[in-house]
Design a binder for these strands. Structure first.
Lengths: 218, 218
DNA sequence: CCGCATCCGGGGCGATACTG
DNA sequence: CAGTATCGCCCCGGATGCGG
């Protein structure tokens, strides 16, 4: 572990999570809750296998990741420790800062529907504080994401929903504008979305009061 | 610029500020407001001169840093753009996460009093909402920092104070415990501090409500 | 298959010297 | 003072191999 050797919080943090790929691994474990080595490989296109193994060892040594030794037989399960989950505000801040850079995918960019799970959790909410429970299934570039709305809370997780009240199928790139209400249902359909079910549920999704993105007033 | 080529906010942010030294350069410009090349070299012990030059070019290209071309004579002045200052929450989150790693300096760690400026700004406040203006000068390992308390606000900046109401001189490592009230004045004096002036001002300094460090409740 | 370990080429990084 | 130039080294990326 190369260190900055500076007695400064930022430097100490970067000593631990500043290496290439490290925070992206934490991202995968935040949105997946638990994952196997091969799940991580799949969620981190471009990473070399030896690098993933190295990083996981370092993260384990730093108390950020634990290896649940296989509930039954093969395939160890990787999870975040509380210390690892405490990195969520870091990732939230970085993601909020990068919002202007996420206009449209650059040529060569990989898109994954599941990468929307964290933004949905962090930056959106259910606008109806008394709303009944409702499930939305997103199918984005072949990746399923479940969004659950209930009493003002918005939950997002990878995977298909059971008995969804609304199914939205389309390209990842325009999903956030649609969910944020910057794209009407009609416009969305025209740009390649299939919307099936109770489309009014979309109106319950609102951007959060961006406490996470606000810096100090001068 | 090596890129992750992932259509994901976190990946895009790390494409820009994920390289080694980059966020530490932003730190220096956050606490210094404006700095020259040699100021940065001094505030970033260990960095190679070519790396600093490279990073500054990249940061300028990314719209994070501007080069004010010399108000008078040579020596260009470096500043953060608004986009650069928007990285403050990122640095705040990383610093808050690293707090448990900042117990005591490791052997070989460089200490700088000015590296306390950002933590003071971000995590502390003036506990007396109606308190009159007061100035504290910290002299930590040969580095001066000015803390100004006024009506609930706490300002911190590098450099000596004029007409300070209180002067505190001592080692960087124990400064935060002292300011956070985890170290009494008597204890502090015993562990190498010189406290000169109105020591009751210390009681006005309080940890902030840590909105920045809190993650979502489950 | 899953979870790595090993090998190898290229380039980012670190230290020092040097120049306008 | 503000960088460029140069030169190792080691990190990173990609491919392959290998035990369980």
């Amino acid at each position: 572990m190369r260190t900055y050797a500076q007695f400064c919080g930022l430097a100490k943090a970067l000593d631990v999570v500043g290496d290439r790929w490290t925070l992206l691994i934490v991202r995968e474990l935040l949105l997946n809750d638990s994952a196997r080595y091969s799940d991580l490989l799949d969620g981190l296109p471009g990473i070399a296998t030896n690098l993933l193994a190295d990083r996981l060892s370092e993260l384990e040594a730093a108390g950020i990741v634990t290896r649940d030794a296989a509930p039954r037989r093969k395939s160890t399960t990787l999870r975040l420790t509380p210390r690892g989950r405490a990195l969520e505000p870091v990732i939230a801040a970085l993601g909020a800062w990068a919002a202007p850079l996420l206009d449209v995918p650059k040529p060569g960019d990989v898109t994954r529907g599941r990468w929307l799970v964290l933004p949905l959790r962090l930056y959106f909410e259910d606008g109806d504080r008394k709303g009944a429970k409702a499930r939305i299934e997103l199918r984005l570039d072949g990746d399923a994401v479940t969004v659950t709305l209930e009493k003002g809370r918005l939950l997002a997780a990878p995977g298909a929903a059971d008995e969804p009240d609304l199914i939205i199928e389309g390209p990842v790139a325009s999903a956030l504008p649609l969910l944020a209400g910057r794209l009407s249902s009609a416009q969305a359909r025209r740009s390649g979305f299939r919307i099936d079910g109770n489309a009014r549920l979309l109106k319950r999704i609102r951007r959060r009061d961006a406490a996470l993105t606000r810096s100090e007033a001068p």
